[in-house]
């Protein structure tokens, strides 16, 4: 499977995701944001970081960059797109995913491992997880407070487009287990066609027992399936 990682000025998780993809035997290429063509890819990843220093709004400037036009075209023709952290913010700014990421409710940058629950395990990104499985994944963000309108929230629930929700270690979803104030504890969502996943937690940081755990591996192996 071929993957491409888009690199913007200020991306800082691009190497991590490349290591994760290569570990899972993806044939990966890094693509600088000024490129106007994308290599043939089955998966495009928009990595975490602080593209353009979060100027204007997180992801706003990257969301209008040249390469994004190509990413939108690829997404519309069915290519899998994964946006992690700043990548999720960029995907909402392009309109590929609905809603937006607001400043964390407590106004603090949060960097810690949190529990998330698998809400949808029928997508191409999550099929290797068990439904309701609790994962421990790192988050590191200042704007992770997912917000969307009522109409879209209903659609997310009706169409089973919520991939992950923040929970406690037993899987209980409550305000206490919500790190950033995200609506209904949402940590990751899919688009209507389920070929795009945006998530705030960092699965690429959870691929090696030596430094963390391996809860992120199944996301990549699901894609290989």
């Amino acid at each position: 499977m071929k993957s491409s990682v888009i690199v913007f000025p200020g991306s800082n998780c691009d190497r991590d995701i490349a290591v994760a993809l290569e570990k899972m035997q993806f044939k990966n290429q890094m693509v600088w944001h000024k490129e106007t063509t994308l290599p043939k890819s089955d998966l495009i990843v928009i990595p975490g970081g602080f593209s353009y220093g979060d100027y204007l709004r997180s992801g706003a400037i990257a969301g209008k960059s040249l390469i994004i036009e190509e990413v939108i075209k690829a997404a519309n023709s069915g290519c899998f797109i994964l946006g992690i952290c700043n990548g999720f913010q960029i995907l909402t700014e392009t309109g590929l995913l609905k809603g937006t990421l607001l400043r964390n409710k407590n106004l603090k940058f949060i960097n810690r491992d949190v529990n998330i629950k698998v809400i949808n395990n029928s997508s191409k990104f999550t099929s290797k997880y068990k439904l309701g499985q609790v994962l421990k994944i790192n988050i590191a963000h200042n704007e992770g407070n997912y917000f969307t309108d009522d109409k879209h929230l209903k659609e997310l629930k009706r169409e089973n487009l919520i991939a992950f929700k923040y929970c406690d270690e037993k899987g209980k979803i409550s305000e206490d287990s919500n790190p950033n104030g995200a609506i209904e504890n949402i940590a990751g969502i899919l688009n209507a066609k389920k070929n795009i996943l945006g998530m705030m937690p960092h699965p690429e940081r959870m691929i090696d027992k030596l430094v963390s755990n391996t809860d992120g591996l199944n996301l990549f192996s699901s894609l290989l399936n």
Binding site: A60, K64, F147, T148
Partner: peptide, 9 residues
């Protein structure tokens, strides 16, 4: 509409 404001919020 295109950049300065995010019309959702």
């Amino acid at each position: 509409q295109k950049l300065l404001a995010n019309l959702i919020i």
